[in-house]
């Protein structure tokens, strides 16, 4: 049975005889990109607590710098 461009299996028909459209599998992600995504996510979260020793440096710039590195790594992951 064909309904609106999709093949729908009838209960009485044998499944093996009916033509079926299989959803295309997503292309596998290369391991290098997967690793870059993982490291990017870890670094992005870590940037929220990252600091350098000495006065006021628990503040923004060290956190921003690490977050920037994470963004670059993530861009490699989705390139």
């Amino acid at each position: 049975m064909h309904v609106e461009g999709r093949f729908v299996m009838s209960r009485t028909a044998s499944a093996t005889r009916m033509p079926q459209r299989v959803a295309p599998r997503p292309a596998p992600i290369p391991p290098g990109r997967r690793r870059a995504a993982t490291v990017g996510l870890w670094l992005l979260v870590a940037s929220s607590i990252f600091f350098l020793p000495d006065a006021f440096v628990r503040w923004f710039l060290p956190k921003d710098a690490l977050a920037a590195i994470a963004v670059v790594l993530a861009s490699v992951a989705v390139a």
Partner: peptide, 13 residues
């Protein structure tokens, strides 16, 4: 740019 980058990473990954 880092703030926008972080939002972009969240959306993409």
């Amino acid at each position: 740019p880092v703030y926008f980058g972080a939002v972009w990473v969240g959306a993409r990954l």
